[in-house]
């Protein structure tokens, strides 16, 4: 016998107005727990990926470490895969030169632009600059390489190198030993342009974490804006700036195509900024085709990738930890 409608329990199941089924609390909790476990498993993927990449490269480059000593590999200057000679020094030196020049060229404009955007610029300038930096960061590295070949290399060859060698040619660093513009400095300029938007974005984020009170106190005491930047803000964010530069450097270390197209690819230890060089990523990219046809060659190339990975991992872990600490403060 049906109870009067007035006292009946509300109908179970889908209500008439289209709301979803009402689930019992225990079922909802169980679903929640299952989802938590599945999600947790998925977050293991990135962790596993880092481990997998490291292990795979280590395992595949092991054969060359067994037949050649580390000292031989890292101090050897002769690269003759057919003769079984694998000296990595020219490539490591090339990577070091190109990256160092890129970072040195990139840092001053990055700092100045970030300070300008954060401390001086009107909101409208900021709103224009942000998409510009996004676009600059989005341009693919091959396109940077094309631009480098079209603009930077001829400029270095026809204008910059003759001028520098006629005025400063007595300094070995600026001596021109080869006639083309495919050189360390071209690679450095391209790298600088490529990492500028990246570093500016990080420093700008860090500058936002500096409390407004600090600026106001400094300005209130009669400091100019520039004094506020150099005496108050800069010391406060110095660790963050260093972390941003390290991240930029690690980005530059691994950059392949753009550098490969302008740096000349001659396996030698550069002594002048106008010398050609052969960085590690370019070595890997240029030789992948013959990799499997010469004994130990694949292990040597993968060792190059492994060295690159280890350096970049170290840089990234340290810099990211510093940045997480600085940027994490903002929320609290």
């Amino acid at each position: 016998m049906a109870a009067p409608a007035l006292f009946s329990k509300p109908e179970q199941g889908r209500p008439q107005d289209g709301r979803p089924y009402k689930l019992s609390i225990s079922l909802r909790n169980r679903l929640n727990n299952i989802a938590a476990r599945v999600f947790w498993l998925i977050t293991l993927i990135p962790v596993g990926l880092v481990i997998a990449i490291t292990v795979a490269l280590a395992v595949r480059s092991a054969p060359i470490l067994q037949s050649h000593s580390l000292v031989e590999l890292f101090t050897g200057t002769v690269w003759k895969p057919f003769g079984g000679q694998f000296g990595f020094l020219p490539f490591i030196a090339g990577t070091f030169w190109v990256t160092t020049i890129g970072v040195i060229l990139a840092v001053p404009p990055c700092l100045l632009t970030a300070f300008y955007l954060s401390e001086y610029a009107r909101p409208i300038t900021r709103n224009i600059m942000k998409p510009l930096l996004d676009v600059l960061a989005a341009i693919p590295s091959v396109v940077y390489g094309v631009w480098g070949m079209l603009v930077i290399v001829p400029f270095v060859q026809k204008t910059f190198m003759p001028w520098m060698s006629s005025h400063f040619g007595f300094i070995p660093l600026f001596a021109s030993n080869q006639p083309t513009g495919f050189s360390v400095i071209s690679g450095g300029v391209i790298l600088a342009v490529m990492i500028i938007p990246f570093i500016i974005a990080i420093i700008y984020e860090i500058l936002k974490t500096v409390p407004q009170d600090l600026r106001e106190a400094s300005l209130g005491l009669g400091a100019t804006r520039w004094e506020t930047i150099t005496l108050v803000i800069f010391p406060k964010i110095l660790p963050g700036i260093i972390a941003a530069i390290v991240l930029g450097a690690s980005r530059a270390l691994g950059e392949t195509m753009a550098v490969l197209m302008v740096v000349g690819n001659v396996p030698q230890i550069p002594t002048s900024i106008f010398d050609a060089a052969y960085p590690l990523p370019a070595l890997i990219a240029n030789n992948y085709g013959e990799m499997m046809s010469i004994p130990l060659f694949d292990a040597a190339l993968l060792l190059a990738a492994f060295i690159l990975l280890l350096i970049i991992l170290t840089f990234n872990v340290i810099a990211t930890l510093v940045l997480q600490r600085i940027l994490g403060r903002r929320g609290k």
């Binding site: 880092v50 795979a56 392949t256 990523p281 890997i284 970049i312 990211t320």
Partner: peptide, 17 residues
């Protein structure tokens, strides 16, 4: 942190992997 590290790994290393 791991995701940031992955982001920093250069594409040539992904290619080799």
């Amino acid at each position: 942190l791991v995701l940031d590290i992955l982001w920093g790994i250069p594409s040539i290393v992904y290619g080799a992997f």
